[in-house]
Nucleic acid binder design. Structure first.
Lengths: 136, 136
DNA sequence: TTATATGCAAACAATTTGCATCCTG
DNA sequence: CAGGATGCAAATTGTTTGCATATAA
């Protein structure tokens, strides 16, 4: 059926959706679907992994959650920050560090504009060695 | 067996490896494994997808090929350029544009250093609208 | 000749989907 | 009560692996 003002309804507010969203918001790290599932399960043992994935899609569309590709074979998720930021992964210990460097966004927009590109998203993933692991 | 100077042999030079490498070098776009497989198959019909994947791993380790995550559920591959560059994906038409903007690398190294990070890799993926699709 | 590379098919891991049922609004 | 959301299991997709055979050096 075509969605019209008439029949369009707001999405349902369910225990599972609230739960997944709370798990993501509560975590300082970037969880993958499995971890979100396990944490949600602690509070709602019947929740299924499929629902977690469906909810993640829902939250992404709602603009509440970011999906991250950090070079692994599965994705990670984070609550959308008010301020844009980047991710750094240490090649030695695997730690992921967040950086708030708006300079990248300015630079991206500026350089993009020079080529006629309208930049709406900047996804920067840095790799290298963190202070603990740096060789020098 | 443990690899020593004694028993270490150079990798074999096979038709399949040459073929996969030529396909990648010859393509201006960023092919995925399946596309590489299909193109290689035109010239060597018996080649298998498994060999393509194994060769991609081999070429990555050799530093000849880059693996790209462009937001899809599968990876893309490109020959390593002499100059670093970034990728831009148009959200409207899907076109991928390459940008050569060393500024990002300088900025990344500079900002990283400020936090004690030794940056070895900069993976930047821009999204937005290309000149044809820009709404202005 | 001998370790390495290949092809095939089976195994895997992450994610998606069909369907019957449940539940929110 | 009606349409959306869930749970379960099965299906898909991208990628990897075991093993017998073929091949480069």
């Amino acid at each position: 059926m075509i969605q019209t003002e008439e029949n369009l309804r707001p999405p349902h507010q369910t225990r599972q959706r609230r739960l997944v969203w709370e798990v993501i918001k509560a975590s300082p790290e970037h969880l993958d679907a499995e971890s979100i599932y396990l944490r949600a399960k602690e509070r709602s043992p019947q929740i299924s992994l499929a629902t977690v994935y469906r909810t993640l899609t829902f939250l992404k569309n709602a603009g509440l959650v970011n999906e991250l590709s950090l070079g692994e074979d599965h994705n990670h998720y984070e609550a959308v920050h008010t301020t844009p930021h980047e991710h750094f992964t240490c090649l030695s210990c695997g730690r992921v560090i967040e950086l708030e460097t708006p300079q990248f966004y300015d630079l991206a927009r500026r350089l993009g504009a020079q080529q006629g590109l309208q930049i709406t998203g900047v996804d920067l993933h840095l790799t290298g060695y963190c202070p603990n692991c740096a060789t020098t």
